[in-house]
């Protein structure tokens, strides 16, 4: 509870600045409108009219809140206007992509740690893969997979996996290499097999690193999925809400979708944080 005051202060400050920015950015339209009608604009009119426009440059916080509320609770969840419907479309692809990406990341990391050739060859490619803008490669993945008959959430999940495997590789390589020479020597004195050293030493040592990179990975997964939804012609998903919003100048819709995506990401990261707490506690690594 002691944290509540500073957090609230920051939130209030942001909302205040947002309102100021909304007045400032939406004022042009109000002045244009007034000039056309030949009337004068007073400060009271300005404040009122900048906050209730249909298509504001920057919607005011209460407009976004209303858009978000309508999207979440104002529609049947099967409706194309429901943020829950679109959120689920995005979430399912994100989860699938996250699972694929994490699994690939862990496998690659094991390969890098145990195989000298992979150690020297895989990492440069993994780094190179992340320097290519995802926006450039996403449409190609979708087109190629479509021509192979793969449609639905799989192409989006692949793009999502493409972004999320990288932090997992980096974190897991570091984690699997974290046991020091003495701990590895100890395993040698027991004449432990490679599999035994992996299961009893390297894997448990890597857990804190794994969870840290999973948190980064799941957020990257969500970004990947949303990017993957853009070139699919705005059919469904939070990405398509963003895109159709920008087609029709529905700024409130864009911001509502953005906040929905942010809440989704926060929820996913929090879930991983919870899993981390439970696992590390059971391992005795949390004091």
């Amino acid at each position: 509870m002691r944290n509540l005051l500073p957090v609230l202060t920051v939130v209030l400050a942001i909302v205040g600045l947002w309102y100021l920015a909304a007045v400032w950015m939406n004022a042009t339209w109000v002045y244009d409108q007034a000039a056309r009608e030949g009337r004068e604009v007073f400060l009271v009119d300005l404040l009122g009219e900048t906050m209730m426009q249909e298509r504001p440059v920057l919607p005011a916080p209460h407009q976004v809140a209303k858009g978000l509320y309508d999207g979440l609770f104002g529609q049947a969840i099967t409706s194309k206007r429901s943020l829950i419907y679109h959120g689920w479309v995005t979430l399912s692809a994100t989860l699938l992509g996250f699972v694929i990406g994490s699994a690939a990341g862990i496998l690659l990391a094991v390969g890098i740690v145990y195989n000298r050739a992979m150690d020297q060859s895989v990492m440069p490619w993994a780094i190179a893969s992340q320097t290519i803008p995802i926006l450039a490669i996403a449409p190609m993945i979708i087109v190629v997979l479509n021509s192979m008959g793969v449609t639905g959430i799989v192409p989006k999940a692949i793009i999502s996996a493409y972004l999320s495997f990288f932090p997992v590789v980096v974190g897991m390589v570091k984690g699997l290499r974290s046991p020091d020479a003495m701990q590895l020597d100890l395993m040698r004195t027991y004449n432990a097999s490679g599999g035994q050293s992996f299961a009893k030493l390297r894997l448990p040592s890597s857990m804190p690193y794994l969870f840290a990179s999973l948190k980064v990975g799941v957020a990257a997964s969500l970004v990947g999925t949303i990017v993957g939804e853009l070139p699919t012609g705005a059919v469904a998903g939070l990405g398509s809400r963003l895109l159709s919003g920008s087609y029709y100048g529905q700024t409130v819709q864009i911001w509502a979708a953005l906040f929905a995506a942010a809440a989704l990401a926060a929820g996913l990261v929090a879930l991983i944080g919870l899993a981390e707490r439970v696992v590390l506690q059971r391992m005795g690594l949390v004091r």
Partner: peptide, 21 residues
Amino acid sequence: ARRKRAYGYVFQAAGLYPWRS
């Protein structure tokens, strides 16, 4: 001898695994 597990080795640091009791 190592493969036959002929010796126990105690290092300078205890080197206990923190995740094991």
